[in-house]
Design a protein around this nucleic acid. Structure first.
Length: 253
DNA sequence: ATGTCACAGTCCCTGTGA
């Protein structure tokens, strides 16, 4: 079972790259973020031709999350059911896994209202996951906009006092981990420098100026069944890439 | 430390968000 998460930064602009990547990588389940599409515009039929059932929660210009599956797609949920209006989380059951595709608010700056929104949003996610069925396998993937450790930041000194690496954000991730979730890529590669996002500006990708902010959080039992997890850096190269690369996990179920 | 990208409306430039 191969599961991927990818912030595509507009599925409309990225369709040639995304469709080619799905075709060659063939994940069983793919979690997408920042589709930036309405549900009406989402390419359900094109994805069907690639072998995927899909569910989308979109709003148009901003945000938008999706789940693509070759192994079944049932019991789709959109949002947290707490009145939040932005399309940032969608859940479903796929091939025996409960999965969520998450686009955590950016936060912008520590003194911004958006930063408080980010912390509230992560708390809502923790509440939602705490209510899950005991014993079911869980994959919570997405763009968390948080680098869990200094190892996940190309130059930690630049991020002191900045969003993405602040202690309250990291504490919010630890709350998810204390609820039984494991940062899969880091579990399998404890000391490796791995990034998943590089700014479009300043030639950041080629200079190695990245952050690891796209995560696959999985339950302990599923983590034990994982055989590999990696970032597909090739997807960040070439013509019209997203600024994020896909994160992949493979499980021996 | 800010050299890019994507989107929609103000519509071939500008503001917003990342």
């Amino acid at each position: 079972m191969k599961v991927a998460t990818w912030n595509v930064n507009s599925l409309t602009a990225r369709w040639p790259r995304v469709s080619a990547w799905l075709d060659e990588t063939s994940p069983d389940v793919a979690l997408l973020q920042e589709t930036k599409q309405t549900d009406e515009k989402f390419p359900f039929a094109d994805l069907k031709e690639l072998g995927y059932e899909s569910a989308h929660y979109g709003e148009g210009r901003w945000n938008g999350v999706a789940i693509l599956s070759k192994v079944g797609l049932e019991n789709v949920t959109r949002g947290f059911g707490d009145g939040d209006l932005e399309a940032r989380v969608i859940g479903a059951q796929c091939g025996g896994l409960q999965v969520y595709s998450c686009y955590v608010p950016n936060g912008r700056a520590l003194d911004s209202d958006h930063y408080q929104y980010k912390l509230r949003w992560l708390a809502s996610l923790a509440r939602t996951l705490a209510a899950r069925e005991p014993g079911e396998h869980l994959v919570v993937g997405g763009d968390f906009n948080v680098a869990p450790r200094d190892l996940d930041v190309y130059d930690p000194s630049l991020f002191v006092g900045m969003t993405h690496a602040s202690e309250p954000e990291r504490e919010a991730l630890r709350v998810l981990e204390s609820g039984g979730l494991v940062d899969l890529t880091r579990r399998l590669h404890p000391d490796e420098t791995i990034y998943s996002w590089w700014d479009y500006r300043n030639g950041a990708f080629h200079r190695g100026w990245g952050l690891r902010i796209d995560l696959l959080l999985v339950d302990q039992a599923l983590a034990e069944l994982a055989t590999e997890s990696y970032v597909d850096r090739d997807a960040r190269k070439g013509v019209k890439p997203s600024d994020h690369a896909p994160v992949v996990g493979v499980f021996s179920l």
